[in-house]
């Protein structure tokens, strides 16, 4: 197993074998959530959460609807700032840097994350302009660089072969699965450190879903991934670690293989075996 250096892309074998069982050098903690509570006005939505995500691993948040998993995900790139009346306590560190401290610029925070939403949301622009949007807002105008970035991202998102002849067509003419992969390409074009996925497959059919899942396997070679899903099979298939939430509380977090075979908590077992949820 090759050594992992920050930012390198040298793990050719991981696509086929989940890294979880393989012993290796200790992985760096990329995201460190400590004692996080969140309030919508007077109502508390998250209670004292502690989660750590490791570099180039897939962390899945699972739990019944309304358990706060999406809210937690949106805390990571401070998308909750957009909602009035949200108050956050506790600490979130990304690569050692505190996110919620007042001297941090929220735009800089968001540049470190790529985000994929539940409902695919391409811009009403061409396929090409969608992919290079993040680069354009960073002020990059060089045509050659934009084209290289677009091709690289689209290849990484396994979409290049399908759209290479229609880069200048409207993105809204693509199929649902293609649109979602386009959104992934758009998110990774700016080379973020971490990819956040908020139920990326919930609006897709099984074939498109399996394509996205394959993509997640490939993408974790380059990115740390946090995925929210309500589909437990999906969590079991794609993630290295899983956190189970209920009613705003973190019930259990563990390696996925252990969580799905020997859960420590009764609640987790009940949920996984489908007794509620």
């Amino acid at each position: 197993m090759a050594a992992i250096t920050l930012g390198s892309i040298a793990r050719p074998e991981t696509a086929s074998s989940p890294a979880s069982g393989v012993p290796g050098p200790p992985l760096k903690d990329v995201i460190e959530i400590r004692g996080l509570s969140l309030f919508y006005g007077a109502k508390q939505a998250l209670f004292d959460i502690d989660v750590v995500c490791k570099e180039k691993r897939v962390m899945a948040f699972i739990g019944p609807s309304g358990c706060g998993k999406s809210t937690l995900l949106r805390c990571l790139n401070r998308m909750n700032d957009l909602i009035d009346g949200v108050r956050i306590q506790g600490s979130i560190k990304v690569a050692g840097q505190e996110l919620n401290s007042p001297d941090v610029d929220v735009v800089d925070v968001r540049k470190r994350f790529g985000m994929v939403f539940q409902k695919s949301n391409p811009f009403p622009k061409s396929v090409f302009e969608n992919v290079v949007y993040g680069l354009r807002i960073q002020g990059i105008k060089d045509k050659r660089r934009l084209h290289e970035a677009a091709e690289r991202s689209l290849r990484l998102a396994a979409l290049w072969d399908e759209v290479k002849d229609r880069l200048n067509d409207s993105a809204l003419g693509l199929s649902g699965g293609q649109m979602q992969r386009l959104c992934i390409a758009r998110a990774i074009a700016v080379e973020p450190e971490i990819l956040l996925m908020d139920e990326p497959c919930s609006a897709l059919d099984p074939i498109a879903t399996s394509k996205i899942e394959e993509l997640i396997f490939a993408l974790k070679e380059k990115f740390t991934i946090v995925i929210v899903t309500h589909n437990m099979q999906q969590a079991a298939r794609v993630s290295d670690e899983t956190a189970f939430f209920m009613l705003g509380k973190l019930i259990e977090v563990d390696r996925t293989d252990r969580m799905f075979t020997k859960p420590k908590e009764k609640l987790t077992e009940d949920y996984i075996t489908g007794r509620f949820g």
Binding site: N77, M79, L82, V107, D108, R110, K111, F113, G114, M115, F117, K119, N121, P122, F123, P124, K125, Y133, G134, R136, I137, Q138, C183, R186, A187, V190
Partner: peptide
């Protein structure tokens, strides 16, 4: 203009004005 479109732009690291100017207004 759908909320998702604005969120997508903001999540990529666009400022509010960039979002307004590049996504919301054209749409």
């Amino acid at each position: 203009v759908p909320r998702g479109m604005r969120e997508a732009s903001l999540a990529i690291g666009a400022t509010k004005w960039q979002t307004t100017y590049r996504v919301v207004l054209p749409a």
